[in-house]
Design a protein around this nucleic acid. Sequence first.
DNA 1: CCAAAAGTGTTAGGTATACACCCATGG
DNA 2: CCATGGGTGTATACCTAACACTTTTGG
Lengths: 226, 226
Amino acid sequence: MKLNYSIKKFEHVIVAVDVVIFTVRDDSLQVLLLELNEHPFVGKWAVPGGLVKTEESLEQAVGRHLANKIGVSDVFVEQLYTFGDIGRDPRGRVISVAYYALVREKDIKVTINPRYSDIKWVKVGKLPEMAYDHAEIIKTAWERLQAKISYTNVVYSLLPQKFTLTQLQRVYEIILGKVLDKRNFRKKILSLGVIEELDETTRGEPTRPARLYKFRSQNLQVIEIL
Amino acid sequence: MKLNYSIKKFEHVIVAVDVVIFTVRDDSLQVLLLELNEHPFVGKWAVPGGLVKTEESLEQAVGRHLANKIGVSDVFVEQLYTFGDIGRDPRGRVISVAYYALVREKDIKVTINPRYSDIKWVKVGKLPEMAYDHAEIIKTAWERLQAKISYTNVVYSLLPQKFTLTQLQRVYEIILGKVLDKRNFRKKILSLGVIEELDETTRGEPTRPARLYKFRSQNLQVIEIL
DNA sequence: CCAAAAGTGTTAGGTATACACCCATGG
DNA sequence: CCATGGGTGTATACCTAACACTTTTGG
C-alpha cells in the first residue's frame, strides 16, 4: 500500500544520527525534544538528529547536530545502538545510529530552528507522542544510563564542578527511580575514591552548611558503584 | 593524497554489517576469518560481512551473510557497535554495524566462496594481519562477550544441549582467560538455577562418569553469574 | 526556638574466597 | 592397579542492608 505524501523517497540506504540529550532538571530526568512540522509527523516529537555527511565521522555528525540545537559540543556523548528496521522512517530507508548525551542544563543554550515548531525539555517518564521509533530509542538510552551510573562515574557530567553528597545522591535517585539509604550511599561513594572532599561548604541556606565535593576525574572511569 | 587503486569509489555513505563469529574449539576461543584477494587488502583477513540492501533489516542482512558463509542462521546474534570512521574503508565511506554471533562448531558448515582465498577458524589471541578496522571490531566483541557471560546465560549457545559441569566451567575459563575454582564455580552456577541436572551421565570415558546438565532456557536471560 | 537538611556507626545476614582429599571408571 | 577427571564442605573475610538520632544554620 502506498501513501501519497508529497515527500521524496530515498532510493538508497541513508545514515542518520539521533541524540538523546539528558539532563537533570526540576528534580527529574528530562530529555530535549523537537516538535516536527513536516508530513507525516506534524505535531509529533523527536530527539535531535540528522543525516551523516560523507566527509564527517559519526561523532562529528553528532557534534554538529548538538551544536545546532544546544550550542555546545563538549559534553559526555556515547553511542547507544543502531536502529535499522525497514519501516522506521516512512520517507525511505534510514538507518539511525543513536547516541545519548549528558548535559548540565545551565551549560547549554537551547536554540530554536525554523525547521521545527518547538523545542523543550520533557520528563522521560511523560513523553508526548513520538515520531519514528524515538520512544524506543529514549527507552533504550534511559536503560543504558541506569546501568551505566551503577558501574562508572558518568554522573560527573550531570553535576556542577562542586556539589554536596545530597545533590549527588539525588541524581542517582532520580535516574534510578528509587530512594537510597543516605548512610550507605555515603559510605559507598566515599570508599570508591572517585570524589574528593573540598575545603568548602555551602553558605546562606537556612540549614546546616554542607561539605562540597568534586570528582577526581572528569573522564569516564569504570568502577563498581551501586 | 590520492591512491591509484583500480576500484570504484562510492559517492554516498554506504552501510554494511560485519559479524564476529565466535566458537569454542580445540580448548580455545576462535573466530571465523576470511582471507581477502582484492585490492587493497590482498592477503589480509576480515570477518564475514557485506552491504545492507534497501529492502532488508540489519538483522536480515546479518542472517543472509551468516547463511552464506556458515550455512546456518539460527544462532545467538547480538548487535555490538557501529564503526563509522572516515578512513576505515579505502574504497569509500562505509559505515559498518558490527554484530557478534556465538555458534557450536559442529552445528555449522563452513562454505568457501570464490570471492575469498581462504576461510578458517583462528584463535582470538593470535589474529593474522587484519583488513579494515576488523582487529578493533574483534577486540570489542571479545570484551563484550567476556562481560556478557558474567551476567547472562549466553554460554548456552556455545555448548551442546547436554554437558558436564567441567565442560561448562571450561568454557567460562576459556572466554575469561583465567582459571576458576571448581567447587566455588559449581556452588555458584547451581545456586542460580539456570541449569538443570539430568538423569544421565557420560559413558565410555576412562574416568569416572560425569553427571550431565542442560540449560533451563535457550534464550538470553540476565542474571548475576560470576 | 523552629524548620530543614547535614552528618554520623553498628549489627546481622549473605556472599565470595581459599583450600585438599576421596571416588569411579577404562585400560 | 594406575591414570584421569568427577565430585564434595568448611571457615574466614568481606560486602550489603537495615536502621535513628544529634548537629548546624537562617529566619
